[in-house]
């Protein structure tokens, strides 16, 4: 039902290039945390270190600690595959498996993690699609390709796929940036519902979105070209958007740079 994440002293590298430096923060369970900041400051990189997706890029590595309810994700005996099973992810561009039907897409993660009876699977697919507010639109064409849906529907399908395996945490990297305003609103509503079950982290370039949906907000920035990104401040969203403690944060959210 959502777990706490504690990050301390985290650095991430691409080969020799240090993309983020010394990040520490605590992310509370059953809340929505937004990451904002100018392009290239390492929001995606940081997000991907949280479910060990960073290290699948050749040459990429991570230093530091990420604790999920006190357990270090980067401990030597922890398998990345198991971490990703607990911490799901939704990407910027909707990426349903093109060779699979809508049903198969939602069931994909479940099928990996052991055997399920047909009725069991049907039930989980239905609840996942209902939780992602997609059920009514697709219930008559579950066997059609997932790639045939609209962009917003595809993204909700990807959310359904991610929550079908019942992760503890859901990471979302700019999930609405490829979508129209209506689909964006649909996904924002969905996040508000899902936060009762999951810990949600969302990267967004849309200030209103961050202000609308998140409980807490972290502002990332670069100290200069080629420097690693870092967290400037993290606080309750209402505080960040009304009365931030750092000047850089204020400049950014009022649109003075970035």
């Amino acid at each position: 039902m959502g777990q706490q994440i504690q990050v301390s002293g985290l650095d991430a590298y691409y080969g020799k290039h240090k993309a983020i430096a010394d990040i520490s923060m605590t992310i509370e369970p059953q809340s929505i945390t937004a990451f904002i900041g100018p392009s290239g400051c390492g929001k995606s990189t940081f997000l991907r270190t949280l479910n060990r997706m960073h290290e699948v890029i050749p040459g990429a590595r991570v230093e530091g600690k990420v604790l999920l309810d006190g357990e270090d994700l980067y401990a030597p005996d922890v398998e990345p595959v198991a971490v990703r099973r607990m911490i799901g992810m939704v990407f910027q561009r909707p990426n349903p498996f093109p060779t699979m039907s809508i049903y198969e897409n939602v069931a994909a993660g479940l099928r990996l993690n052991g055997k399920h009876s047909k009725s069991n699977l049907d039930g989980i697919v239905e609840t996942s699609l209902k939780s992602s507010n997609l059920w009514n639109e697709v219930k008559d064409r579950l066997n059609k390709p997932g790639a045939g849906l609209s962009g917003g529907q595809q993204q909700r399908l990807c959310i359904a796929r991610a929550i079908a395996v019942k992760p503890e945490v859901l990471l979302m990297d700019e999930p609405c940036s490829a979508l129209d305003p209506i689909s964006t609103l649909a996904i924002e509503d969905l996040m508000a519902e899902l936060k009762n079950q999951f810990t949600i982290i969302i990267v967004t370039h849309n200030m209103q979105q961050a202000a609308r949906v998140s409980d807490r907000t972290a502002f990332f920035n670069l100290s200069g070209q080629g420097q690693p990104g870092h967290v400037v401040e993290m606080d309750d969203t209402s505080r960040i958007f009304t009365n931030p403690s750092q000047k850089a944060t204020e400049d950014y959210i009022t649109g003075r740079f970035g």
């Binding site: 479910n51 997706m53 971490v83 990703r84 498996f97 991610a162």
Partner: peptide, 17 residues
């Protein structure tokens, strides 16, 4: 496409999966 492989990875798939 890289994004399809990442989708599988993010679901907790092993390399074979």
């Amino acid at each position: 496409p890289r994004m399809h492989e990442e989708a599988a990875l993010a679901l907790g798939a092993t390399r074979w999966e």
